[in-house]
Nucleic acid binder design. Structure first.
Ligand SMILES: [Zn+2]
Ligand SMILES: [Zn+2]
Length: 623
DNA sequence: AGATGCGGGTCGG
DNA sequence: CCGACCCGCATCT
């Protein structure tokens, strides 16, 4: 049989150096040869490759097994074979039970389970490979050889999808395997004699699919994108209601959230919002997360890409960072490397007659204030700002303003005084309706960074974190910003527990579900650190523009990633310590330190996990 | 969601 | 009867 010698060589290669001999040419050659072969039955395996075993030499790889997987008794072996991921041909191996790959019946080929009505022998058949209908070549010069999903349903979804190659309009097609007399190549696994016996029948007549890890990584990316789509913003003017959900990204049935009490949430259900941070709007008081925008054409913003998030700084060195983020000026000259983005309500914004973005900001804030009460007069008069600097001046000269420019009328009715309103905190001139929204959205700290633009501004950053009127936060007086060396302008604190300075856990990407958390979340300081050339403005840690571009907001990790990471030594021994309150209430408070570092002896790792497992879902509803 | 394994059932040779 | 194959279910990651 002409096919014999060829496959003999290939099978030996499969044990030794498979990649060196298995290529497209050999596949074609074998395919042609097999087509010239007379028909054979599937049960005549020994005659299919008559010279296979006898031609093997132990010196060529040790493939000397002559048993068949169906034999009643399989011979015991003294030395097990090294695991072969790309077994092909009529190959047989005996693996040790300590081989994880063997235990899991791993194969580079996409093998699906096949019922052979024999519980003793696990049978799998090859699914082939997904190829591009136009047989395109990727930018790296490779052909598209995707791994078919093992799940039938998932595989059906794969077929027909657009080729992943950029600028290729081809569709994914399934190149089936016919390597075993027209049927797919089959693998057999049998656990006996304290070993794992493997046998392959047939020769794959198709290229190898991508590695399993590669397919899993792609699937993971897909899931991340889907998660971003959840953040899609719907704009249906005029009434906007903003609510915030904490979305759990724990794998279903593996939710670890119930182990924690971060943000005082109840145990979550898979794929369901865990809770609403949004205080329910009762139509009486000021709902901090309720905004209003005047009527406009319906705009639906959908973005599922955030590739440009990293390394782009939309916050140029002017003072309209915050405002222009939400309401960018139409004629503003932007940095060349800054992509022009779309944002929710852009059409309305673009169509709005005005001279600068302040008009829109004022209108935005005014209508926001109007909406927070059923009767605008109950809230107070609104004095529009004339400039961004005025906003900041207001913030600086009125560090404990109740609501900048929105002065509630004195009233005995406490229903108009939500904790947000009565809290003496620096809103940076941003009306509470917006400020508190951002405050809640960004876990306080990014909001602070976004709202300040001069590194030497006196700030009470702590007040931006928490409600200091809350009696449960009294002990926060010990919580002071440090003169942190990581940041220009000493603008970021370094969270440290003085009593255990050496017990900081390096935050590394966690395995499994926590891999969804980008690594840069663990290097928050690198995100905050400014390139030297950008010394005119200190902030850029929080990229609100990209936040909107990405569907308003993705997760805590994304909000902390905006600049090209400039590695900063993370030596913590010399960082300025501050006392981090450790009562239960405080642990509910978002804190930059929560993102940065934790003592290993506290429950902070669980919080760390929370930060990775959760994203914030903002829903904007326009009536 | 998808991988993986199990097993009932069907169909054609 | 055998092997391929479909499908649903359960479990795990
Ligand atoms: Zn293609
Ligand atoms: Zn195959």
């Amino acid at each position: 049989m002409g096919i014999g010698p060829i496959d003999d060589d290939l099978s030996r290669c499969a044990c030794i150096d498979y990649s060196a001999c298995f290529n497209e040419t050999s596949i074609i050659a074998r395919t042609i040869n097999r087509q010239e072969e007379p028909a054979m039955t599937l049960t005549e395996e020994p005659s299919y490759f008559p010279t296979y075993d006898s031609s093997l030499d132990e010196s060529l790889g040790g493939c000397i097994h002559k048993w068949d997987i169906n034999d009643n008794a399989l011979p015991k072996v003294k030395v097990c074979d090294p695991f072969c991921e790309w077994a092909d041909g009529n190959s047989r191996y005996v693996y040790t039970v300590t081989s994880e790959d063997a235990r899991r019946h791993i194969s580079g080929w996409a093998m699906r389970n096949t019922n052979n009505h024999n519980a003793q022998i696990l049978k799998k058949s090859c699914l082939g490979v997904l190829v591009c209908s136009q047989d395109c070549t990727t930018e790296t010069g490779n052909k598209v050889h995707l791994r078919p999903a093992i799940c039938d349903k998932a595989r059906r979804k794969q077929i027909g999808k657009t080729c992943p190659t950029i600028r290729c309009r081809g569709r994914l097609e399934l190149m089936s395997c016919h390597g075993h007399c027209g049927y797919p190549v089959t693998h057999f696994w049998r656990h006996v004699n304290s070993a794992i016996y493997f046998q392959s029948k047939g020769v794959h007549d198709h290229p190898r699919p991508e590695m399993k890890a590669s397919a899993e990584a792609r699937r993971h990316q897909k899931s991340l994108r889907q998660q971003h789509r959840l953040m899609t913003v719907s704009f249906n003017f005029p009434l906007l209601r903003m609510s915030i959900d904490i979305i759990c990204s724990c794998p279903p049935f593996e939710c670890t959230c119930r182990q924690n009490d971060y943000m005082n949430r109840s145990p979550c259900s898979p794929r369901r919002p865990k809770s609403h941070l949004t205080p329910p709007y009762d139509g009486q008081g000021l709902s901090s997360l309720r905004l209003d925008i005047k009527a406009s054409p319906v705009v639906r913003h959908r973005s599922d890409s955030h590739e440009h998030t990293m390394g782009i700084d939309p916050f140029v060195a002017d003072d309209s960072n915050f405002i222009s983020t939400f309401f960018p000026p139409l004629n503003k000259t932007r940095h060349d490397n800054i992509p022009q983005i779309s944002f929710p309500g852009q059409r309305y914004y673009n169509d709005m007659p005005r001279t600068n973005n302040m008009d829109y900001f004022n209108q935005f804030t005014q209508t926001s204030a109007r909406d927070v009460g059923s009767d605008f007069s109950k809230i107070g008069d609104y004095k529009p700002f004339n400039s961004i600097s005025e906003i900041k001046d207001c913030a600086l000269t009125n560090p404990h303003n109740e609501i900048a420019r929105i002065k509630p009328e004195p009233t005995a009715d406490s229903k108009f005084h939500t904790p947000r309103q009565t809290t003496q905190k620096d809103n940076f001139g941003i009306p509470d309706a917006i400020y508190t929204s951002l405050h809640d959205l960004m876990g306080s700290r990014p909001c602070y960074d976004a709202l300040t633009s001069h590194e030497n501004e006196p700030v009470d950053f702590l007040s931006t974190f928490i409600d200091t009127n809350d009696p449960s936060n009294n002990n926060l007086n010990t919580f002071r910003p440090s003169q942190d060396r990581y940041l220009p302008g000493n603008r970021l604190p370094s969270c440290q527990i003085p009593s255990s300075p050496s017990q900081y856990a390096e935050l590394k990407p966690l395995r499994r579900s926590n891999d969804a958390c980008p690594h840069h979340i663990y290097e928050p300081y690198s995100s905050y650190r400014q390139p030297a050339k950008q010394n005119e403005t200190t902030f850029k840690p929080y990229d609100m523009m990209n936040t909107f571009e990405n569907g308003l907001l993705s997760s805590c990790s994304d909000t902390l990633s905006s600049s090209p990471p400039e590695k900063v030594p993370t030596t913590r021994a010399d960082s300025q310590p501050y006392t981090r309150p450790c009562d239960n209430n405080f642990h509910k408070m978002p804190c930059l330190g929560d993102i940065c570092q934790y003592p290993t002896t506290t429950s902070c790792p669980s919080v760390k996990q929370q930060l990775c497992n959760h994203s914030i879902n903002i829903t904007l509803t326009y009536n």
